[in-house]
Amino acid sequence: MITYALFFAFGCFGLALLLNLWRIVTGPDSADRILALDTMVINAIALMVLYGIWRGTAVYFEASMLIAMVGFVSTVAYCRFVLRGDIIE
């Protein structure tokens, strides 16, 4: 039963990544693109944790923690660049 639920979740988050990609391509504003990239990072973390459940291993948590941190820092850096024209003043 877990296998079916797992593949349902894989499908949902994969489709979510495609929708985010659509927003990155068509987004009329750079704020839209930053938002879509941030959502893509979160969806990628979810996919990675799902893969860890599927394989029955716990080694992917460190990777997803690192991706979460890098994703947050890159979102803030991109926003600061749009806001101030500079990242570290």
Partner: peptide
């Protein structure tokens, strides 16, 4: 939990 999480993730990106 997996099904609920998948639906929430899809709704967020939709």
């Amino acid at each position: 939990f997996l099904v609920i999480a998948g639906v929430f993730g899809l709704v967020g990106s939709f």
